[in-house]
Design a protein around this nucleic acid. Structure first.
Lengths: 341, 341
DNA sequence: CTGTTAGCGCATTCAC
DNA sequence: GTGAATGCGCTAACAG
């Protein structure tokens, strides 16, 4: 390539990068030559030299779930706007695969990683290796990383409060991971709303699917069989809402007449069905964008510090985005005489 | 790291890679040292040296559209299983952004690229630079690449035939790009079915949205206003189906009593609504997987050729996957006396 | 079996 | 202003 331009490699490098002195006409020549032979600088070699890549990793739990796809789209958008590339790994919510993904990211010297943690190990590994990390949607509890999440407790509380205010007293909760993070917060919100309304909790109405989504449908059926006095269901994510919706329909139960239904996470289909689903809408795309922005900010900061200024490295940033309860037709006051009582 | 193990770099390298001779006890030491300091080999440097990376690019049109998310998930799955990383770029269907994405891929020396082409330029650029390319869902017409697509004409023909057999004669087609590839094929299928059934075509019933999805809703409304004798709608992708569904409901038209509706592309919501949507189901995830597999096969082949064998480079592979018409409640015979006639 | 040497493509000194 | 030399982390070839 330098040969094509009839100059030395250094000069060519300077001409292309715009760094350092180079005669105007020489630059022309070089640019023309580059154009001619379709020269594209090797980002790898540049990274090796500069010790800083422009790739950022994204680790999500399930790309086929619209929620994560939306998140990924937001991250990609912000990243690409800033000239970064996104390497995407789908760990299927498996801590082991998550860890493998994290290792792959350090192997490829990713500048930073955005992830929806399934465990703390991945974040810890990354942070220890000096990779900037931003957790999204969940917080693993690992130290040294920023995070941006949705206020799950608030969202769950609002959804539950809405049902309680309508007069529901037997509200089933469909949830999938109560030990931790998002799941725990939503459970807390559900409880807090009950407490605030002075309505007693019934543990048997809380269906914790843990990690087995496989038999979700039958577990829901079982719960409805055992507790025919349930007048409302709060599904803690879009998958659960889907399961609940299908099961209610299979049983021929009318929504909201027989049972009211609320979803946490508002997808397009929820306004397509009749009645539309009342749902807690999350700014998912924005959460992705914000996570990427935080990451980029951190990277810039770190570079400035390395450059010279001895930046003290600000405290971790923990952002919380507010969800919104969207009222649609799937929630109404319970029938005067409950189905089962 | 070599220092930590008390040996030379080459020896360490051999121990870790398993290539070449290394005394057993020395290998132990090296492995232990690597473990201790948490050494992770630099994939970049390795790539630079080996002149072959293990990253593959994926270029899609809209990650927020479930169709592409599904495709991406399939690609990712196959890639990761083979030890490759996926770099994802969302070009929003814009040829310019697509080209930029392609350039980024050659800059990072991606081994191959899977893409859903918006134009031929990106594929051409890639192929010319020696990057293996597999096109998915669409064929740009560029040479030198493999492809895997869904049989759009067949799917469209089946969907249309289904409507014709039910007795519909005025079938509106909602389509978004008839000049090219997938859109053109679906239009052809729609026509072929009419021809086979000896039903005359009415061009005015073909609503070509081109690229402006923005006013899709109003355009559909307009069409329904002008042609009240339409008894069925065939929406050529999931977005169109969504638009049609919402517009029909807004007008208070009953599906399928007043108007039947068929979608090309079957999403989860289509079986959640009442009545369920009859749809042409595509093996989208599998298409993604298959595309990645073809790509990997091509890469392996090329390496074998470079290695020694002078492989002649097989002819391009063009796979076609069959879609399936899924019958649900949204299609039925037209009412005896059409709404408008 | 192990250490030394060299070079992948780039950017950055440093002489000229 | 420009070119020659150096090194980023790795591995393949060679010599010991």
């Amino acid at each position: 390539m330098a040969r094509e331009a009839g100059t030395s490699r250094s000069t060519a490098s300077r001409a292309l990068s715009g760094q350092g002195y180079v005669a105007a006409h020489i630059r022309e020549d070089v640019l023309a030559a580059a154009q001619r032979i379709g020269y594209v600088p090797d980002a790898l070699a540049r990274t090796l030299k500069a010790q800083r890549s422009n790739v950022v990793g994204l680790l999500v739990s399930d790309l086929r779930n619209q929620f994560y796809a939306e998140l990924a789209a937001g991250v990609e958008q912000a990243l690409r706007a800033a000239g970064y590339q996104m390497v995407l790994v789908d760990d299927h919510g498996d801590p082991q695969q998550e860890l493998d993904g994290a290792k792959a990211f350090v192997a490829m010297r990713a500048t930073g990683v955005v992830l929806t943690p399934a465990a703390a190990a991945a974040t810890e590994l990354l942070v220890e290796r000096g990779v900037s990390v931003v957790e999204a949607d969940r917080r693993s509890g690992a130290r040294g990383c920023d995070s941006v999440i949705i206020d799950s407790e608030y969202g769950a509380r609002e959804a539950t409060r809405h049902l309680l205010e309508l007069g529901h007293r037997r509200i089933a909760l469909l949830i999938d991971e109560t030990k931790w993070a998002t799941g725990a917060e939503r459970l807390r919100g559900y409880r807090a709303a009950h407490r605030a309304a002075d309505v007693p909790l019934d543990r048997r109405l809380v269906l914790d699917l843990e990690f087995q989504a496989a038999d979700a449908r039958s577990r829901v059926a079982e719960l409805l069989d055992q507790h025919p006095d349930v007048t409302a269901i709060f599904a803690v994510n879009n998958l659960m809402a889907e399961t609940a919706w299908l099961e209610l329909r299979r049983r021929g139960l009318a929504v909201p007449r027989d049972v009211s239904l609320v979803s946490f996470d508002d997808l397009a289909w929820m306004r397509m069905v009749e009645p539309g689903l009342t749902a807690v809408a999350q700014p998912t795309y924005d959460m992705g964008r914000r996570a990427a922005e935080l990451l980029l900010g951190r990277v810039a900061e770190r570079e400035a510090a390395a450059e010279s200024k001895r930046g003290p490295g600000r405290r971790r940033i923990q952002e919380t985005l507010e969800p919104t309860l969207v009222l649609r037709g799937s929630t109404a006051a319970p029938a005067a005489s409950p189905t089962g009582a």
